[in-house]
Design a protein around this nucleic acid. Structure first.
Length: 609
RNA sequence: GCGUCUGUAGCUCAGUGGAUAGAGCAGUGGCCUCCGGAGCCGCGUGCGGAGGUUCGAUUCCUCUCAGACGCACCA
């Protein structure tokens, strides 16, 4: 369906044109003075200069033209309906518009009849790769992984919804120095293992020489040690180099690390409602790296500098000369940028995407500038391919500093999720009687909504304060409040159905769906309807601007509008059955839109709460 | 030092080249013979600072102050 703002703008453009002004001035926006009007057009003021006329005169011309005009909206059903309830020109030259109740009701009925509630599939099947995992093998997920996972999942869902072919890749950190660190730490802890016996010629064991919890302990220990112990660090670097060159015993250890760790990671991401189409990692880029380096050297793009192999990426109009991109360290090992470039080559070969979206912490900005520039400069990626780096702000604690556990350590994701679940559970139990099992289940669902909504409702690029008490509150602009609205609507709908069944009435669900939504009978109802009509516009904008928080803002406002409507309108007590059925259809649409939005955001609503 | 990002209400956050800059929380006062009161309706304070462009700037530009982050062999 066309967006309602576009439909209105069509009228406005025609009116401007009819009066001899350029159609472009007919741009329409939501009103910023809801007390005066619903939509507004400021074009008359912009046009004043070009036509040497007073803005108000232009506005009056256009309004007159608009009044004499018949609507020509393309939605055939709506074409016969006058679009506006009122149009007026006011000083200094605003054109204020109110939509007719019939037109709006017809528009909403159009939404009800569509699979995606009026959202258009503008993606046309274009392939977009979204790289939003960044988890490191052998290292537990922590809060630092939370944002990218949540945001990436949302971006992917929105894109798919709008008809793009989104490919989500977890892109594991499974190949860098960390692997060498683990190997060497393991050698010190269990020197008797055959992997460390150079004379060993037999088969390596199937069984991993460690459990996930051991592994999770080994890495941090090794990492800390490498910062103090130069010799250890050197050993780790050598081990990394050997692994990267296919040394069999280390490859065997690496496989064990991968197997043990992957199962755990999958479980944790699943708990977050986050899924990936690809479980690729840096290791998958390795086969491309020798060719990549050779190619860059042969074409003179890469050269030696201070022992390392680098590619210049500076451009003449950079405010500051950027450091070159290192693609091979002086010890011969590949590194982050190299494997990202290798990954790009693989992705081009397998998917040839029209856009890349990388979602990471904003501290990696320089790295992605370098990688993108090398990819374009070397022609690995077409010039017109969009490469976007979505930079996430940091998640801070209430003190404004990076989020930590009470003890001051890094908070593990599973602990965070559990804490939130418990906070929600306590709230449920103190307010309502629900059996324990259901409360447990509900608190899982609600907790995830609290967590995700709390994150997604902030702008991606900004640091934000993570506050469990605030996020899990059932009041205000929170995930639970949105769910509460949905649950209330479900409850009303269930009662209505029951009522109809008891009366043996013919108002079956199918019949309800068939009849129309009625023009608003109150200011609250109309506000609700206007808000609903913006759905397709909002989803499209949220994706185009990669701004999930716009979706959050929308559902909050929609929930709020529903709250006001609900509070002033007796739905089930309404005696006029037609009117009542109209209300039911309306709130059913509210529910559908809300559920659709939370699904895009990546969480669900419980049946009760 | 250089660069990037960010400064909006007591707190947490939205927002726009235009009319009176909005929400939530906290504080405070109302609203149930009523569908979930975990609700609804009121009440007050603010665009870090200075210039500039513009009929109009919180928004665009310059400078300045403050904070976060980054600045070649970690990822």
């Amino acid at each position: 369906m066309k967006k309602i703002l576009d439909l209105i703008a069509e009228q406005m453009r025609a009116a401007f044109e009819g009066c001899g002004y350029a159609a472009d001035y007919g741009k329409v926006t939501l009103s910023n003075r809801p007390d005066l009007c619903e939509y507004q057009c400021n074009g008359a003021m912009a046009a004043a200069k070009a036509y040497h006329k007073k803005p108000i005169d232009i506005a009056n011309d256009v309004v007159a033209a608009l009044k004499g005009q018949t609507p020509r909206g393309e939605a055939a059903d709506n074409a016969a309906l006058p679009m506006f309830e009122s149009v007026e020109a006011v000083m200094p030259g605003f054109i204020n518009l109110k939509l007719s109740g019939e037109y709006l009701a017809a528009y909403l009925d159009g939404m009800r009849g569509e699979d995606k509630l009026g959202a258009e599939e503008t993606g046309g099947g274009k392939t977009i790769i979204v790289d939003y995992g960044g988890a490191n093998v052998a290292k537990p997920l922590h809060v630092g992984h939370l944002r990218t996972a949540i945001i990436g999942e949302c971006i992917k869902r929105m894109g798919n919804y709008l008809g793009y072919h989104m490919i989500g890749d977890v892109h594991l950190g499974d190949w860098g120095l960390q692997m060498g660190l683990i190997i060497e730490e393991l050698r010190d802890r269990k020197p008797e293992l055959p992997y460390f016996d150079e004379a060993y010629a037999g088969e390596y064991p199937q069984e991993a020489p460690f459990t996930i919890s051991e592994l999770e302990q080994i890495y941090p220990a090794a990492s800390a040690r490498s910062k103090e112990d130069e010799a250890f660090k050197a050993r780790a670097q050598e081990a990394t180099f050997k692994l990267q060159n296919g040394y069999a015993p280390f490859t065997a250890i690496w496989r064990h690390i991968m197997n043990v760790s992957l199962a755990d990671l999958k479980k944790n991401y699943a708990n977050l409602n986050v899924t990936f189409d690809l479980w690729k990692g840096e290791s998958d880029a390795q086969p491309y790296i020798p060719g990549l380096i050779e190619d860059l050297q042969k074409r003179g793009l890469a050269y030696e500098s201070e022992g390392a192999l680098v590619v210049d990426i500076a451009l003449p109009d950079d405010p500051k000369e950027l450091p070159p991109c290192i693609i091979r360290k002086s010890d011969g090992a590949a590194l982050y940028a190299t494997s990202d470039l290798g990954t790009i080559i693989e992705r081009e070969r397998d998917y040839a995407p029209e856009e890349y979206i990388y979602i990471t912490d904003k501290r990696q900005e320089l790295h992605f500038i370098q990688v993108f520039r090398v990819a374009k400069k070397a022609g690995y990626v077409k010039p017109e391919t969009k490469m976007t780096h979505m930079m996430c702000g940091t998640m801070n604690g209430r003190d404004g500093k990076p989020f930590k556990t009470r003890a001051g350590g890094v908070m593990r994701l599973e602990n965070l999720i559990r804490e939130i679940g418990e906070a929600v559970y306590d709230r449920i139990m103190e307010n309502r009687t629900m059996d324990e099992e259901e409360a447990r289940r509900a608190s899982q669902i609600i907790g995830l909504a609290a967590l995700k909504y709390g994150d997604l409702s902030n702008q991606v690029s900004k640091d934000y304060v993570f506050d469990i008490d605030r996020f899990t509150s059932f009041e205000g602009n929170t995930g639970p409040y949105i769910l509460y609205t949905i649950v209330r609507i479900k409850s009303i709908l269930a009662r209505y159905e029951q009522e109809q069944a008891e009366n043996g009435e013919n108002m079956s669900a199918a019949k309800i769906g068939a009849a129309g939504i009625r023009p608003a009978g109150s200011a609250e109802e109309k506000s609700l309807m206007l808000k609903l009509s913006a759905y397709n516009d909002v989803v499209e904008a949220a994706f185009a601007e990669k701004a999930p928080h716009k979706l959050c803002q929308f559902i909050y406002e929609l929930s709020d509008a529903f709250g006001s409507f609900y509070n002033t309108t007796m739905i089930l007590k309404e005696e006029d059955q037609e009117k009542k059925a109209g209300y039911i259809r309306l709130i059913c649409l509210v529910k559908d839109v809300l559920e659709s939005c939370i699904h895009l955001l990546g969480f669900d609503a419980p049946e009760r709460m």
